[in-house]
Simulated assay, not measured.
Amino acid sequence: MKVSDFNYDLPPELIAQHPLAQRDQSRLMVIDQATGGITHRVFRDLIEYIEPGDLLVLNDTRVLPARLLGVREGTGGQVELLLLRRIDLNTWETLAKPGKSARPGRFFSFGDGRLRAEILEVREDGNRIVRFHYEGVFEKVLDDLGEMPLPPYIHEKLEDRERYQTVYSRAEGSAAAPTAGLHFTPELLEAIRGRGAETAFLTLHVGLGTFRPVKVEVITEHLMHSEYYSIDELTAQRIEAARTAGRRIISVGTTTTRTLETVMRDRGRIEACSGWTDIFIYPGFEFRIVDSLITNFHLPESTLIMLVSALLGYDHTMEAYREAVRERYRFFSFGDSMFIRSSRFKEGPNHDRQA
Rank of each mutant, 00 (worst) to 15 (best):
G194D: 10
G196P: 14
G196N: 09
A197I: 08
E198I: 03
E198L: 13
F201P: 00
F201E: 13
L202D: 06
T203A: 06
L204E: 06
L204H: 12
L204R: 08
V206Q: 03
V206R: 03
G207S: 07
L208P: 10
L208N: 09
G209I: 06
G209E: 02
T210Q: 09
T210F: 10
T210R: 08
V214H: 12
K215T: 15
K215Y: 04
E217Y: 01
V218A: 12
V218D: 12
T220C: 02
H222K: 12
L223Y: 05
H225Q: 05
S226P: 13
S226D: 09
Y228R: 15
Y228Q: 12
Y229F: 15
Y229N: 08
S230L: 15
S230A: 14
S230H: 15
S230I: 00
I231Y: 10
D232A: 05
T235C: 14
T235M: 06
T235V: 04
A236Y: 07
Q237G: 07
I239K: 01
E240N: 15
E240D: 15
R243P: 03
A245Y: 01
A245T: 03
A245K: 13
G246S: 09
R247S: 10
R248I: 11
I249F: 11
I250Q: 11
S251M: 02
V252E: 02
G253W: 13
T254Q: 01
T255P: 06
T255Q: 11
T256M: 10
T257P: 01
R258V: 01
T259C: 13
L260Y: 04
L260S: 05
E261N: 05
E261G: 05
T262W: 05
M264C: 01
R265Q: 14
R265D: 14
R267W: 04
R267V: 00
G268I: 09
E271H: 07
W276Q: 14
W276P: 00
T277V: 04
T277W: 00
D278P: 01
I279G: 11
I279D: 02
I279E: 02
Y282D: 02
Y282G: 05
P283R: 06
P283Q: 06
G284H: 08
G284C: 12
F285D: 04
E286Q: 15
F287N: 05
V290Q: 02
V290A: 09
S292G: 11
T295S: 12
T295C: 01
F297L: 15
L299V: 14
